[in-house]
Write a protein that binds this DNA or RNA. Structure first.
Lengths: 201, 201
DNA sequence: CCGGCGCCGGGACATTTGTCACGGTGAAAC
DNA sequence: GTTTCACCGTGACAAATGTCCCGGCGCCGG
């Protein structure tokens, strides 16, 4: 019997997937979590064979959970399941030691199959997405450029970003300008969109 | 037997929900759709009792589908299911004649229950969301303000918006300024965020 | 030891953005 | 018939943004 941890913040999705996976004769959902913190706690106490992790959760990223699990439960295979097939997400997932990466667009039948395959030691990755990740290249933004762009993305003004990051306004403008240049865009809004689409911020 | 149409663009979610609803003894999913166009076609050919519609679909809004269904299949109850509990969405859904409005955060058990309740003639709406919709008030933006803000949201520059909307740059700036004023924000980015959060654009 | 690079800052400049005051039209509301 | 409001436009101005210089520090690899 495959013991499985399911971390997903949308209640309806989580419930539906849990029900569906429990229908499989060789799979048992031993823990459900709606937040990153819950996922870590549940993993520690139930020690599942496979962890099915969503990326977007209210209190943190499933990618961070994956990285923690690699250290704390090295035998537990991690399968990332996400809405957005962003190249940067896939890259981060691989760096965090994930064994598989699925997008929620695909058919449900993929899911149980993927669980069995990662447990067998296989890597499960959408080929089209892998190609996109390779072609997009690594994240070109430096730490500070990311910070500045992330802050700017929600409309925060240069002055406020400077305060939040303990920087001068000139520096913030320089970082934003660099980010705009590296993303090949015309302003901070386009830069933020592009960076998000690639999973860079 | 309740004949049900399921329209939802995420394959995994759609598959899981279809499976789950088919487990109910009195519900049968007679059609599945991944786009707005498919939903309309399927509804016309299968004439379901209840239509379960997602809002965000690649080729159009489930709210538009709801409005069309009201004219073409007046006997079909519409139940909107969406990720985002935005006040404006709820308002639009009610105006489009929907019988119910669910957010995907809730437990799955809600779903089958809601289907039965709308079929019984009841209205199904999350109370907290209804309160938010009332307190947020109606969409304060005029058509053109919405157009300008929508275009500005993805980083398009004033000059380009003017071209796309066949307006002068001054006019576009005036609309954006009005939108910023009405949303009580400091710039177009914040205005776009606020408008999106309220379901105004 | 030197070069490259991430990090931090300053100053100056052109461009873009946001605000305000103003005028005119047409359609709907009272 | 007047008022109201969405709509479209102009011109001018202040503020924010984006770009390009410049300087310095510390760290790492060749």
């Amino acid at each position: 019997m495959i013991r499985l941890l399911l971390a997903e913040d949308q209640g309806m999705m989580r419930g539906a997937l849990a029900l569906l996976l429990n229908l499989e004769p060789d799979i048992e959902v031993v823990a459900e979590a709606g937040t990153a913190a819950e996922a870590l706690r549940a993993a520690a106490s139930t020690r599942p064979d496979v962890a099915l992790l969503d990326i977007e959760m209210p209190d943190g990223s499933g990618l961070d959970v994956a990285a923690r699990l690699r250290d704390e439960l090295p035998d537990c295979r991690v399968l990332i399941v996400t809405t957005f097939g962003r190249p940067g997400y896939l890259r981060q997932a691989m760096e965090a030691g994930a064994a598989g990466f699925l997008v929620k667009d695909g058919p449900v039948e993929q899911l149980a199959a993927a669980v069995r395959r990662v447990l067998a030691g296989e890597r499960v990755i959408d080929p089209a997405l892998a190609a996109a990740a390779l072609s997009a290249g690594p994240n070109p933004l430096t730490d500070r450029e990311r910070d500045a762009l992330t802050a700017a993305a929600d409309g925060t003004t240069v002055a406020d970003i400077a305060v939040r990051l303990h920087l001068s306004e000139s520096t913030v403008r320089n970082y934003l300008s660099a980010a705009i240049g590296k993303t090949g865009t015309r302003n901070r809004i386009e830069a933020a969109h592009r960076a998000r689409a690639n999973g860079w911020i």
